[in-house]
Design a protein around this nucleic acid. Sequence first.
DNA 1: GATAAGATTAACT
DNA 2: GTTAATCTTATCC
Length: 190
Amino acid sequence: MDWLDGPAEAAARRLLGCILERKLDDGGILRGRIVETEAYDQADPASHSFKRARNRSAAMFGPSGHAYVYFTYGMYHCVNVVTGPAGHGAGVLIRALEPLAGLAAMRRNRPNVPDKQLTNGPGKLCQALAIDRSLYGHDLSRPPLRLIEMAPLAEAAITQTVRVGIRQAVDVPWRFYVTGNQYVSKPAAT
DNA sequence: GATAAGATTAACT
DNA sequence: GTTAATCTTATCC
């Protein structure tokens, strides 16, 4: 996907407002609008792709438009969109979605949770969309997980802050979210 | 082979 | 605000 081949920071902005579509094995379709992202690059100490490819982060060095899914804290998956050309280890973590379709299935995947909390975090949205490592390296241009390009958001609608939950390079302001959206995981940077 | 830490979340106090 | 749940990966014997 050539519109993702620029710097990770630019791709992270560009991905806001785009649609993630998940097709379930039973034929159900789940859709969400990306409202929060974080950029990671091989020059960034906080990135899994820092300096070199590891087993886990190999997908980040592949062509853009593929999925980098990883498992963390023993309980949760997180999903990235691989950005930059093949050979460059960069990606954008999808931190939050605004649910658009398939709400019933999302509620099934995350029982006893208010709608506002279905997809307002990187581990949560993977649960809601049933994303796991079977989708590692998946080509996001086709089912069962598709990324749909949408018109870029206006600069004025985007808030840029420091990233969440990392210990390295905590001052790098590569987190982006749609200003005022109710599904953003942590609207005010800490 | 063993151990510590992690791009998290939810349930506590 | 603090902590448990839980497992993969990296790093260090």
